[in-house]
């Protein structure tokens, strides 16, 4: 299948937005005070050593050249050296991703796994006790900061009950799925729950509303007229059609998921990307800040473009409307 013109246009639009985003990030970091060479060598460095390093880093080249060099580097995986860690930024990010990616993935799975059944249940029992409880959960979950949930989870499940570590991350180890694997996962469980609760609350609310909307559609009556029980019509006809808004909301929640990850990693002292960005900022390791922020922004843009595409796949009608 050849891509349709609308799809090409949308892809080009996403690429352009990414380009503008990278330029904004680059210019803001450029405008920030602090000389990378000085940060790397310390304030006591000799003037000619500094000059040599600046030359080596290419800091004396014109702005646009440096911007393009950075972009080229991002594409080829060469994002430069961290000022403070002295290692390639790309490697640093990849290493920290091994924490952040599983964390956000676990949180998303948990949030979807809880919210979709809960939202469907609430809609199916509209106005009854189960619905009320789900609504209260949704209202509370949206209002509660995830880093506070994290603190409370630590208080109860780590300090009082001792079921999980208070924080930190043992690493995945070489053994793969041995004890090291379990240690790593158990270190991620509480953070994932903290990250998942607000997400689950939002998604529960959206699922409930979407299921109620779809349940009022004519084709649900058609399904019931075929002899499908209420339960079967709900799961075979209502829920699949109600998932569209849920998927959209999942995409729209990505910025909050990323923000949440930065906070939750901080609470649980997890060496993830969020912690990396936060520490890099306090150490003025601006090249790390620059690349990490670009990475996050690119993820948001990519997820949104992906959500649009997925939406079109899930709803065959949209293809026709294009």
């Amino acid at each position: 299948m050849t891509p349709s013109p609308s799809r090409i246009r949308r892809l080009a639009g996403a690429a352009l937005m990414l380009l503008v985003t990278s330029l904004v990030i680059f210019l803001l970091i450029e405008a920030a005070p602090g000389d990378p060479a000085e940060i790397m060598l310390g304030t006591s460095a000799q003037a000619d050593t500094l000059a040599a390093l600046r030359d080596q880093l290419g800091l004396d080249r014109p702005l646009m050249v440096r911007y393009l060099a950075w972009l080229g580097g991002v594409v080829t995986g060469n994002m430069g050296q961290s000022y403070t860690y002295g290692v390639p930024v790309a490697g640093l990010i990849a290493e920290r991703m091994l924490v952040t990616l599983p964390l956000t993935l676990m949180a998303t799975l948990l949030a979807v796994g809880v919210s979709v059944p809960l939202g469907v249940m609430a809609a199916a029992r509209q106005g009854r006790a189960g619905d009320g409880l789900a609504t209260v959960f949704a209202q509370m979950g949206i209002a509660v900061p995830n880093f506070w949930i994290g603190l409370l989870l630590i208080l109860v499940f780590a300090l009082k009950l001792g079921w999980f570590p208070v924080g930190g991350f043992p690493g995945w180890g070489d053994a793969g799925w041995g004890d090291a694997g379990w240690g790593a996962i158990s270190a991620l469980i509480l953070p994932a729950v903290a990250l998942a609760i607000p997400q689950a609350a939002v998604l529960t609310r959206v699922t409930r509303a979407a299921v109620l909307d779809v349940a009022a559609e004519d084709f649900i009556r058609t399904a019931r007229a075929k002899g499908l029980s209420r339960h079967r019509a709900l799961w075979r006809h209502t829920v699949p059609n109600a998932l569209l808004p849920v998927v959209t909301m999942l995409g729209l929640q990505i910025p909050f998921l990323i923000s949440g990850a930065v906070l939750v990693e901080n609470v649980f002292s997890l060496p993830g990307i969020g912690t990396l960005a936060y520490q890099a900022l306090s150490q003025r390791d601006l090249i790390v800040v620059q690349n990490v922020v670009l990475l996050f922004a690119a993820i948001v843009l990519a997820v949104n473009a992906g959500t649009d595409a997925l939406y079109a796949r899930l709803d065959p009608r949209l293809k026709a409307r294009q």
Partner: peptide, 22 residues
């Protein structure tokens, strides 16, 4: 809408990290 898309890629914490650097 394009401008919106760009701004949407900057949740408060990311902006704060960038602006904090500035």
């Amino acid at each position: 809408m394009g401008f919106n898309g760009v701004l949407f890629a900057f949740p408060p914490i990311l902006s704060a990290i960038l602006l904090g650097a500035l």
